[in-house]
Design a protein around this nucleic acid. Structure first.
Lengths: 90, 90
DNA sequence: CTGCATTTGTGCGTATGTATG
DNA sequence: ACATACATACGCACAAATGCA
């Protein structure tokens, strides 16, 4: 299987559905702090969307401060505790 | 010379034009079975495109079963006869 | 075995063109 | 015009495999 129940015709656009799905995974602890999220390519296959759409979903989480992204490596769940930062914040 | 007449504005996208060019070379015997194709870097310089574009072209040939690729070495024209070597088959 | 260069694999950032509602 | 989405393309960086000295 691949697609995770994304409705292109739902009132919520796909990228928001995906964002919500990822946020739920983080809240659930499925995606723990410091751990990498699925790559854009993974999201692309998993949800059956284009890369831009997967990227838009990640952008939502990034704007909400839930994740941070490192060029050439991937996106990671922000760590609420333990000092040493990562993306630009003191 | 370098660029092989790739038209960025043609109806056929560059990566398909390059793929077609390479396929023609194989059909013509210019690229014989078992012999390595130009590296991605070579294709990049030859057609004046980005590496991603060259890779997309190679992906087309790979999907058509015309070539196989080995990490760290390169892509090779598949051998139609009983070679007993190359990519994964006994 | 170690170190280096080459090559492919992967992943992200960004821009453009096109299509649809 | 705008938001959303897809396809394509360029650029950059790092990881892993390979081959050779």
């Amino acid at each position: 299987m691949a697609a995770r129940e994304i409705d292109p015709r739902a009132p919520e656009p796909p990228y928001r559905q995906i964002a919500a799905d990822l946020i739920a995974e983080i809240a659930r602890g499925d995606l723990a702090p410091g751990k990498p999220l699925p790559s854009e390519k993974e999201l692309t296959e998993r949800y059956g969307v284009a890369r831009n759409t997967a990227r838009s979903a990640l952008a939502v989480l990034r704007e909400q401060g839930l994740i941070y992204t490192v060029t050439g490596r991937g996106s990671y769940v922000v760590e609420p505790t333990g000092g040493a930062d990562h993306h630009g914040d003191a």
